[in-house]
Protein backbone atom coordinates (compact mmCIF):
# COMPACT_ATOMS: atom_id res chain seq x y z
CA UNK A 1 0.00 0.00 0.00
CA UNK A 2 2.70 2.47 -0.89
CA UNK A 3 2.07 5.75 -2.63
CA UNK A 4 2.89 4.34 -6.07
CA UNK A 5 0.10 1.83 -5.63
CA UNK A 6 -2.32 4.52 -4.47
CA UNK A 7 -1.58 6.67 -7.51
CA UNK A 8 -1.98 3.66 -9.74
CA UNK A 9 -5.28 2.70 -8.10
CA UNK A 10 -6.64 6.22 -8.37
CA UNK A 11 -5.66 6.40 -12.02
CA UNK A 12 -7.28 3.06 -12.84
CA UNK A 13 -10.43 4.04 -10.94
CA UNK A 14 -10.86 7.25 -12.92
CA UNK A 15 -10.17 5.37 -16.14
CA UNK A 16 -12.81 2.77 -15.26
CA UNK A 17 -15.46 5.39 -14.56
CA UNK A 18 -14.68 7.16 -17.84
CA UNK A 19 -14.93 3.91 -19.78
CA UNK A 20 -18.29 3.04 -18.22
CA UNK A 21 -19.73 6.45 -19.05
CA UNK A 22 -18.37 6.34 -22.58
CA UNK A 23 -19.76 2.83 -23.06
CA UNK A 24 -23.19 4.17 -22.22
CA UNK A 25 -22.86 6.98 -24.74
CA UNK A 26 -21.46 4.61 -27.35
CA UNK A 27 -24.39 2.21 -26.98
CA UNK A 28 -26.81 5.09 -27.20
CA UNK A 29 -25.19 6.27 -30.39
CA UNK A 30 -25.25 2.78 -31.89
CA UNK A 31 -28.90 2.12 -31.17
CA UNK A 32 -30.31 5.55 -31.90
CA UNK A 33 -28.27 7.10 -34.68
CA UNK A 34 -27.57 4.22 -37.02
CA UNK A 35 -29.83 3.91 -40.08
CA UNK A 36 -33.12 2.13 -39.70
CA UNK A 37 -35.68 3.61 -37.37
CA UNK A 38 -36.39 0.98 -34.75
CA UNK A 39 -38.82 3.24 -32.93
CA UNK A 40 -41.31 3.56 -35.70
CA UNK A 41 -40.54 -0.03 -36.71
CA UNK A 42 -41.87 -1.22 -33.36
CA UNK A 43 -44.62 1.24 -32.85
CA UNK A 44 -46.04 1.08 -36.33
CA UNK A 45 -45.65 -2.65 -36.63
CA UNK A 46 -49.25 -3.81 -37.31
CA UNK A 47 -48.64 -6.83 -35.07
CA UNK A 48 -48.33 -4.56 -32.06
CA UNK A 49 -51.64 -2.91 -32.88
CA UNK A 50 -50.96 0.56 -31.45
CA UNK A 51 -53.34 3.28 -32.52
CA UNK A 52 -52.00 6.66 -33.64
CA UNK A 53 -52.99 8.20 -30.30
CA UNK A 54 -51.15 5.50 -28.37
CA UNK A 55 -48.09 5.94 -30.55
CA UNK A 56 -48.05 9.65 -29.84
CA UNK A 57 -48.51 8.97 -26.16
CA UNK A 58 -45.59 6.51 -26.06
CA UNK A 59 -43.37 8.83 -28.04
CA UNK A 60 -44.19 11.68 -25.65
CA UNK A 61 -43.72 9.45 -22.58
CA UNK A 62 -40.32 8.24 -23.77
CA UNK A 63 -39.41 11.71 -24.99
CA UNK A 64 -38.63 10.39 -28.44
CA UNK A 65 -39.77 13.57 -30.16
CA UNK A 66 -36.88 15.56 -28.71
CA UNK A 67 -33.54 16.10 -30.47
CA UNK A 68 -31.12 13.18 -30.14
CA UNK A 69 -28.66 15.09 -28.00
CA UNK A 70 -31.38 16.08 -25.53
CA UNK A 71 -32.49 12.45 -25.40
CA UNK A 72 -28.93 11.34 -24.81
CA UNK A 73 -28.48 13.84 -22.01
CA UNK A 74 -31.71 12.93 -20.25
CA UNK A 75 -31.16 9.18 -20.47
CA UNK A 76 -27.52 9.64 -19.52
CA UNK A 77 -28.35 11.71 -16.46
CA UNK A 78 -30.96 9.22 -15.31
CA UNK A 79 -28.43 6.42 -15.85
CA UNK A 80 -26.05 8.30 -13.55
CA UNK A 81 -28.58 8.16 -10.73
CA UNK A 82 -29.39 4.53 -11.46
CA UNK A 83 -32.64 4.98 -13.39
CA UNK A 84 -32.66 2.70 -16.41
CA UNK A 85 -35.91 3.95 -17.90
CA UNK A 86 -39.03 2.14 -19.08
CA UNK A 87 -39.30 -0.76 -21.48
CA UNK A 88 -40.87 0.33 -24.75
CA UNK A 89 -42.77 -2.91 -25.02
CA UNK A 90 -44.13 -3.63 -21.60
CA UNK A 91 -43.87 -0.13 -20.09
CA UNK A 92 -42.39 -1.63 -16.96
CA UNK A 93 -39.18 -0.31 -15.45
CA UNK A 94 -36.16 -1.84 -17.17
CA UNK A 95 -34.49 -2.31 -13.78
CA UNK A 96 -37.36 -4.57 -12.69
CA UNK A 97 -37.20 -6.59 -15.90
CA UNK A 98 -33.49 -7.13 -15.42
CA UNK A 99 -33.77 -7.90 -11.71
CA UNK A 100 -36.31 -10.61 -12.49
CA UNK A 101 -34.01 -12.55 -14.78
CA UNK A 102 -30.62 -11.69 -13.30
CA UNK A 103 -30.40 -14.50 -10.68
CA UNK A 104 -30.84 -17.20 -13.31
CA UNK A 105 -28.05 -15.75 -15.46
CA UNK A 106 -25.77 -15.25 -12.46
CA UNK A 107 -26.19 -18.90 -11.46
CA UNK A 108 -25.47 -20.03 -15.01
CA UNK A 109 -22.48 -17.72 -15.43
CA UNK A 110 -20.97 -18.68 -12.08
CA UNK A 111 -21.47 -22.40 -12.72
CA UNK A 112 -20.00 -21.93 -16.20
CA UNK A 113 -16.94 -20.25 -14.73
CA UNK A 114 -16.45 -23.04 -12.20
CA UNK A 115 -16.71 -25.65 -14.96
CA UNK A 116 -14.25 -23.67 -17.08
CA UNK A 117 -11.72 -23.42 -14.24
CA UNK A 118 -11.95 -27.11 -13.32
CA UNK A 119 -11.61 -28.14 -16.93
CA UNK A 120 -8.69 -25.80 -17.50
CA UNK A 121 -6.78 -27.10 -14.47
CA UNK A 122 -7.42 -30.72 -15.45
CA UNK A 123 -6.25 -30.10 -19.02
CA UNK A 124 -3.20 -28.17 -17.87
CA UNK A 125 -2.32 -30.87 -15.35
CA UNK A 126 -2.70 -33.51 -18.06
CA UNK A 127 -0.45 -31.73 -20.51
CA UNK A 128 2.34 -31.59 -17.95
CA UNK A 129 2.15 -34.99 -16.38
CA UNK A 130 0.40 -37.36 -18.70
CA UNK A 131 2.97 -39.65 -20.33
CA UNK A 132 3.54 -38.76 -23.98
CA UNK A 133 2.01 -41.96 -25.30
CA UNK A 134 -1.23 -41.37 -23.41
CA UNK A 135 -2.17 -38.41 -25.46
CA UNK A 136 -0.29 -35.51 -23.95
CA UNK A 137 -0.08 -33.94 -27.39
CA UNK A 138 -3.76 -34.58 -27.87
CA UNK A 139 -4.55 -32.71 -24.67
CA UNK A 140 -2.53 -29.75 -25.87
CA UNK A 141 -4.83 -29.64 -28.85
CA UNK A 142 -7.93 -29.47 -26.66
CA UNK A 143 -8.00 -25.69 -26.14
CA UNK A 144 -7.72 -25.16 -29.88
CA UNK A 145 -10.53 -27.66 -30.46
CA UNK A 146 -12.75 -26.08 -27.81
CA UNK A 147 -12.28 -22.69 -29.41
CA UNK A 148 -13.38 -24.08 -32.78
CA UNK A 149 -16.73 -25.40 -31.65
CA UNK A 150 -19.65 -22.97 -31.59
CA UNK A 151 -21.09 -23.11 -28.09
CA UNK A 152 -24.62 -23.68 -29.34
CA UNK A 153 -23.32 -26.87 -30.95
CA UNK A 154 -21.88 -28.02 -27.62
CA UNK A 155 -25.26 -27.27 -26.05
CA UNK A 156 -27.19 -29.16 -28.71
CA UNK A 157 -24.86 -32.15 -28.52
CA UNK A 158 -25.26 -32.26 -24.73
CA UNK A 159 -29.03 -32.00 -25.06
CA UNK A 160 -29.08 -34.71 -27.69
CA UNK A 161 -26.80 -37.11 -25.82
CA UNK A 162 -27.74 -36.53 -22.18
CA UNK A 163 -31.25 -35.15 -22.57
CA UNK A 164 -32.70 -37.30 -25.31
CA UNK A 165 -30.52 -40.41 -25.50
CA UNK A 166 -29.56 -40.98 -21.86
CA UNK A 167 -32.42 -39.10 -20.24
CA UNK A 168 -30.22 -37.49 -17.56
CA UNK A 169 -32.27 -34.30 -17.63
CA UNK A 170 -35.51 -33.15 -19.15
CA UNK A 171 -35.39 -30.35 -21.66
CA UNK A 172 -38.73 -29.00 -20.53
CA UNK A 173 -37.34 -28.31 -17.04
CA UNK A 174 -34.52 -25.91 -17.86
CA UNK A 175 -33.98 -24.83 -14.27
CA UNK A 176 -33.49 -28.30 -12.81
CA UNK A 177 -30.06 -29.10 -11.38
CA UNK A 178 -28.93 -31.34 -14.22
CA UNK A 179 -30.18 -29.05 -16.97
CA UNK A 180 -28.33 -26.15 -15.32
CA UNK A 181 -25.20 -28.25 -14.98
CA UNK A 182 -25.17 -29.16 -18.67
CA UNK A 183 -25.91 -25.57 -19.65
CA UNK A 184 -22.94 -24.55 -17.52
CA UNK A 185 -20.77 -27.14 -19.26
CA UNK A 186 -21.81 -25.80 -22.67
CA UNK A 187 -21.01 -22.29 -21.52
CA UNK A 188 -17.77 -23.23 -19.76
CA UNK A 189 -16.04 -25.30 -22.43
CA UNK A 190 -15.03 -22.47 -24.79
CA UNK A 191 -13.99 -20.34 -21.82
CA UNK A 192 -11.93 -23.16 -20.33
CA UNK A 193 -9.91 -23.16 -23.53
CA UNK A 194 -8.71 -19.61 -23.02
CA UNK A 195 -7.84 -20.19 -19.38
CA UNK A 196 -6.14 -23.49 -20.18
CA UNK A 197 -3.96 -21.94 -22.87
CA UNK A 198 -2.58 -19.35 -20.50
CA UNK A 199 -2.23 -21.86 -17.70
CA UNK A 200 -0.34 -24.32 -19.92
CA UNK A 201 2.01 -21.63 -21.17
CA UNK A 202 2.74 -20.50 -17.61
CA UNK A 203 3.22 -24.03 -16.33
CA UNK A 204 5.72 -24.66 -19.11
CA UNK A 205 7.50 -21.48 -18.11
CA UNK A 206 7.52 -22.25 -14.38
CA UNK A 207 8.59 -25.87 -14.88
CA UNK A 208 11.71 -24.59 -16.61
CA UNK A 209 12.69 -22.46 -13.62
CA UNK A 210 15.48 -23.45 -11.30
CA UNK A 211 13.31 -23.81 -8.23
CA UNK A 212 11.29 -26.46 -10.05
CA UNK A 213 14.47 -28.34 -10.90
CA UNK A 214 15.55 -28.11 -7.26
CA UNK A 215 12.20 -29.44 -6.11
CA UNK A 216 12.43 -32.29 -8.60
CA UNK A 217 15.97 -33.11 -7.52
CA UNK A 218 14.78 -33.30 -3.93
CA UNK A 219 12.58 -36.12 -5.16
CA UNK A 220 9.26 -34.36 -5.21
CA UNK A 221 6.58 -36.28 -7.09
CA UNK A 222 4.91 -34.84 -10.13
CA UNK A 223 1.57 -34.34 -8.49
CA UNK A 224 3.04 -32.61 -5.44
CA UNK A 225 5.30 -30.46 -7.59
CA UNK A 226 2.26 -29.39 -9.59
CA UNK A 227 0.06 -28.67 -6.60
CA UNK A 228 2.63 -27.21 -4.22
CA UNK A 229 5.01 -25.32 -6.49
CA UNK A 230 3.86 -24.80 -10.04
CA UNK A 231 0.16 -24.11 -9.73
CA UNK A 232 0.31 -20.97 -7.63
CA UNK A 233 2.76 -18.88 -9.68
CA UNK A 234 1.14 -20.12 -12.88
CA UNK A 235 -2.35 -19.19 -11.87
CA UNK A 236 -1.63 -15.56 -10.99
CA UNK A 237 -1.85 -14.35 -14.60
CA UNK A 238 -4.98 -16.48 -14.88
CA UNK A 239 -6.70 -13.97 -12.59
CA UNK A 240 -6.40 -11.41 -15.37
CA UNK A 241 -7.63 -13.87 -17.97
CA UNK A 242 -10.67 -14.80 -15.92
CA UNK A 243 -11.53 -11.13 -15.59
CA UNK A 244 -11.27 -10.79 -19.36
CA UNK A 245 -13.56 -13.76 -19.98
CA UNK A 246 -16.39 -12.19 -17.96
CA UNK A 247 -17.64 -10.57 -21.14
CA UNK A 248 -17.68 -13.90 -22.86
CA UNK A 249 -19.58 -15.49 -20.00
CA UNK A 250 -22.27 -12.86 -20.50
CA UNK A 251 -22.23 -13.07 -24.29
CA UNK A 252 -22.14 -16.86 -24.22
CA UNK A 253 -25.04 -17.06 -21.80
CA UNK A 254 -27.12 -15.29 -24.44
CA UNK A 255 -26.78 -18.31 -26.73
CA UNK A 256 -26.71 -20.96 -24.03
CA UNK A 257 -29.94 -19.67 -22.53
CA UNK A 258 -31.59 -19.83 -25.94
CA UNK A 259 -30.39 -23.37 -26.56
CA UNK A 260 -31.45 -24.67 -23.15
CA UNK A 261 -34.65 -22.63 -23.02
CA UNK A 262 -33.67 -20.83 -19.82
CA UNK A 263 -35.12 -17.48 -18.84
CA UNK A 264 -32.34 -15.01 -18.14
CA UNK A 265 -30.57 -11.91 -19.35
CA UNK A 266 -29.85 -13.68 -22.63
CA UNK A 267 -33.48 -14.43 -23.36
CA UNK A 268 -34.40 -10.90 -22.27
CA UNK A 269 -31.91 -9.56 -24.81
CA UNK A 270 -33.27 -11.86 -27.48
CA UNK A 271 -36.82 -10.77 -26.82
CA UNK A 272 -35.79 -7.13 -26.79
CA UNK A 273 -33.89 -7.54 -30.04
CA UNK A 274 -36.85 -9.06 -31.84
CA UNK A 275 -39.16 -6.33 -30.55
CA UNK A 276 -36.45 -3.67 -30.87
CA UNK A 277 -36.95 -2.64 -27.25
CA UNK A 278 -34.10 -0.17 -27.16
CA UNK A 279 -34.20 0.97 -23.51
CA UNK A 280 -33.78 -2.65 -22.39
CA UNK A 281 -30.91 -3.28 -24.80
CA UNK A 282 -29.24 -0.05 -23.78
CA UNK A 283 -29.50 -0.99 -20.12
CA UNK A 284 -28.23 -4.55 -20.55
CA UNK A 285 -25.26 -3.49 -22.63
CA UNK A 286 -24.33 -0.73 -20.21
CA UNK A 287 -24.63 -3.05 -17.23
CA UNK A 288 -22.50 -5.64 -19.01
CA UNK A 289 -19.87 -2.96 -19.53
CA UNK A 290 -20.09 -1.98 -15.86
CA UNK A 291 -19.61 -5.60 -14.76
CA UNK A 292 -16.69 -6.08 -17.14
CA UNK A 293 -14.96 -2.87 -16.12
CA UNK A 294 -15.47 -3.42 -12.38
CA UNK A 295 -14.25 -7.02 -12.48
CA UNK A 296 -11.18 -6.01 -14.47
CA UNK A 297 -10.53 -3.11 -12.16
CA UNK A 298 -10.59 -5.44 -9.18
CA UNK A 299 -8.30 -7.88 -10.96
CA UNK A 300 -5.86 -5.13 -11.90
CA UNK A 301 -5.87 -3.68 -8.41
CA UNK A 302 -5.38 -6.99 -6.60
CA UNK A 303 -2.75 -8.22 -9.02
CA UNK A 304 0.13 -6.12 -7.65
CA UNK A 305 -0.89 -7.17 -4.14
CA UNK A 306 -0.85 -10.86 -5.05
CA UNK A 307 2.42 -10.67 -6.94
CA UNK A 308 4.93 -8.32 -5.35
CA UNK A 309 7.22 -8.67 -8.36
CA UNK A 310 4.85 -6.57 -10.43
CA UNK A 311 6.33 -3.10 -10.66
CA UNK A 312 4.05 -0.16 -10.90
CA UNK A 313 5.31 2.26 -13.49
CA UNK A 314 2.16 4.21 -14.14
CA UNK A 315 0.71 1.22 -15.89
CA UNK A 316 1.36 -2.21 -14.45
CA UNK A 317 4.24 -4.04 -16.00
CA UNK A 318 3.12 -7.58 -16.47
CA UNK A 319 5.13 -10.73 -16.34
CA UNK A 320 6.27 -12.38 -19.54
CA UNK A 321 5.02 -15.63 -20.97
CA UNK A 322 1.33 -15.20 -20.52
CA UNK A 323 0.58 -17.28 -23.57
CA UNK A 324 2.23 -18.39 -26.73
CA UNK A 325 -0.44 -20.16 -28.70
CA UNK A 326 -3.88 -19.36 -29.90
CA UNK A 327 -4.55 -16.57 -27.48
CA UNK A 328 -2.73 -13.60 -28.85
CA UNK A 329 -5.86 -11.59 -28.16
CA UNK A 330 -5.59 -12.40 -24.50
CA UNK A 331 -1.86 -11.98 -24.26
CA UNK A 332 -2.14 -8.69 -26.08
CA UNK A 333 -4.84 -7.48 -23.79
CA UNK A 334 -2.85 -8.65 -20.80
CA UNK A 335 0.46 -7.18 -21.82
CA UNK A 336 -0.64 -3.95 -23.42
Amino acid sequence: MNSAYRTYAAKRLVQAVVVILLAYVFTFVVVSILPGDPITNVLRNPQNGFTEDQIREIIAAQGLDRPVLVQLWSSFSSFLVGDLGLSMRSHRPVATLIAEVLPSTLILAFAGLVVALLLAVVIAYGTRFLPKRFGQGLLRGFPSLFLSVPNFVIGLVLIHLFGFQLGVFRVIEPDSFWATLFAAIALGIPISAQIAEVLIANLDHEAGQEYAAVARSRGLGKARLFAKHLLKPSSLPVVTVIALTIGELLGGSLITETVFGRTGIGSLVQRSVSTQDLPVLQAVVSLAAVVFVVVNLIADLTYPLLDPRVKLLGTPERRPATADEGSSTISQAVTS
Binding site: V19, L22, G247, G251, A289, F292, V293
Partner: peptide, 10 residues
Protein backbone atom coordinates in the same frame (compact mmCIF):
# COMPACT_ATOMS: atom_id res chain seq x y z
CA UNK B 1 -11.37 0.36 -23.93
CA UNK B 2 -15.04 1.07 -24.47
CA UNK B 3 -15.25 -1.42 -27.34
CA UNK B 4 -13.47 -4.00 -25.20
CA UNK B 5 -15.73 -3.38 -22.21
CA UNK B 6 -18.86 -4.38 -24.09
CA UNK B 7 -19.02 -8.17 -24.46
CA UNK B 8 -18.09 -8.95 -28.05
CA UNK B 9 -21.13 -10.98 -28.86
CA UNK B 10 -23.49 -8.52 -27.22
Amino acid sequence: DVLLAIPKFL
